[in-house]
Simulated scan of single mutants.
Amino acid sequence: MNRLRHIIEWNVFGVCTWLGEKMGIATSTIRKYFIYISFLTMGSPLIIYFFVAFWMNVRQYIWFRKRNPLRY
């Protein structure tokens, strides 16, 4: 079960995990409220979710480029 959970977290960008670590809230609580809000608003929080996922990937790429000056 933990292996499946780990695979799912890595494949869905880890936004809820990142947000939970930043805010000090349990990841499962954030996921639960995200699902509830998505049902109530007919999926509009998905736009915010994908934006944050995109921003996390861009930020990671920029941070990696700054860390490694030998890379072209």
Score class of each variant (00 low, 15 high):
Ile37Trp: 09
Leu40Ile: 07
Arg59Phe: 05
Ile8Met: 13
Ile8Phe: 10
Ile62Pro: 00
Leu46Gly: 09
Lys66Leu: 10
Ile37Lys: 08
His6Arg: 15
Gly20Leu: 06
Ile47Thr: 12
Tyr36His: 06
Asn57Phe: 03
Asn68Gly: 06
Ala53Leu: 10
Gly24Trp: 03
Tyr33Gly: 09
Met42Phe: 13
Glu21Ser: 09
Ile35Tyr: 04
Thr41Gly: 00
Ile35Ala: 09
Leu19Tyr: 00
Trp10Thr: 09
Phe54Gly: 11
Ser28Glu: 12
Leu70Arg: 08
Ala26Thr: 08
Lys22Trp: 13
Leu70Glu: 05
Met23Phe: 06
Arg65Pro: 06
Leu70Asp: 05
Arg5Ile: 13
Ile30Asp: 11
Trp63Gly: 15
Ile25Phe: 03
Tyr36Ala: 02
Ile47Glu: 01
Leu70Phe: 11
Phe64Ser: 08
Tyr61Asn: 15
Thr27Glu: 13
Phe39Cys: 07
Thr41Tyr: 00
Tyr33Gln: 03
Ala26Tyr: 15
Phe50Glu: 03
Met42Trp: 10
Val52Trp: 02
Met42Thr: 12
Leu40Glu: 02
Cys16Leu: 14
Val12Pro: 01
Met42Tyr: 05
Tyr33Val: 06
Met1Pro: 12
Glu9His: 02
Arg5Gly: 08
Gly24Lys: 01
Ile62His: 12
Arg67Ser: 13
Asn68Ser: 03
Ile37Met: 12
Asn2Ala: 10
Glu21Asn: 15
Cys16Ala: 15
Met1Arg: 06
Gly14Val: 04
Asn2Glu: 12
